[in-house]
Design a protein around this nucleic acid. Structure first.
Lengths: 153, 153
DNA sequence: CTTCCAGTTGCAAACGATTTGCATTTGCAT
DNA sequence: ATGCAAATGCAAATCGTTTGCAACTGGAAG
């Protein structure tokens, strides 16, 4: 009860089916695969929502009570630097993460539930590009978030 | 060295010329106009950039050394609730504020300098609206930020 | 132009999210 | 098995922001 992929392509299986497993990525990058990391990576692989660090920590502790919150933060930072996950800082709240290997998309955040719905508009992307061009800038990345509530009726 | 309005309509005078002065707004809302508030409001009226609370505080202290940072935060919250200023939380950094009575616009943040360039695309607004419609949502507000660097050459 | 008190203030302590220092483990290449 | 840089857990530190509280002050009422 926290996130949905909207173009709703297939039928709701594990939304974030990593193409290349996280462990493979770490191995390729020459980064150690430790016990706490395994736990966190598994949680991320199974997650179909956009959990924040504390939520990941809660799920991790259930598997291995000795894992520290700091390790979750360190691991998420590592994965972000590696490009394996994306960090989103929605309105005020804590940063929330999602697997990076999905196609690019933006988010609509349900103000009542916190649910995150993903969407994508090629047309908007083009317009953004065009605007940056006109302003003489190269876009590194962007952020488009719609905040709203389910339409009544 | 921190913000520019891009459509660059007129020649760079006080970018945020409040239509209705802040003091008028407070008065109308039945909110007291105190000494520290006067200082902060003046700073905001003169600001042509998007200062954060600490920056507003620094400028305020030059005028009246006894002003507290907490007062700046409280005043900004008050103005935001009043709808007189907009709060933007760009990438990680602290919240930055701007006068609310300009026409709606989005932002391009210069990753090298922190400068904020404003832009507006009616077409993008329409597309966002359309997307929300399709998803069955009413947009409360949105956030579109482009992060980039000045194009080389 | 006093009086009065709810609204405001300054200050310091509390906060939530995240990061960091450090001494202790632990992957994993040898 | 061995060695050591990398990673961990823990606690303390940081950053931006909020809050409790006692002292202070606009500005409406007299």
């Amino acid at each position: 009860m926290n996130s949905k992929t909207v173009p709703n392509t297939a039928t709701g299986q594990k939304a974030s089916s990593a193409h290349r497993s996280y462990e493979e990525e770490l191995r390729e990058a020459g980064i150690r695969i430790t016990k706490p990391r395994k736990v966190i990576l598994k949680i991320l692989t199974q997650a179909s929502d956009h959990p924040d660090a504390m939520e990941i920590f809660r799920r991790a502790v259930k598997v291995d009570a000795s894992i520290a919150l700091a390790t979750v933060y360190r691991t998420m930072k590592m994965l972000e630097d590696l490009g394996a996950v994306h960090r989103h800082s929605f309105e005020g709240g804590p940063a929330r993460f999602e697997n990076a290997d999905a196609e690019h998309h933006d988010h609509l955040i349900d103000l009542d539930t916190g649910d995150v719905i993903e969407f994508h508009s090629e047309r908007i992307e083009q317009l953004q590009q065009q605007i940056a061009d006109e302003l003489g800038y190269d876009i590194e990345h962007h952020r488009l978030e719609l905040y709203g509530r389910k339409r009544k009726k």
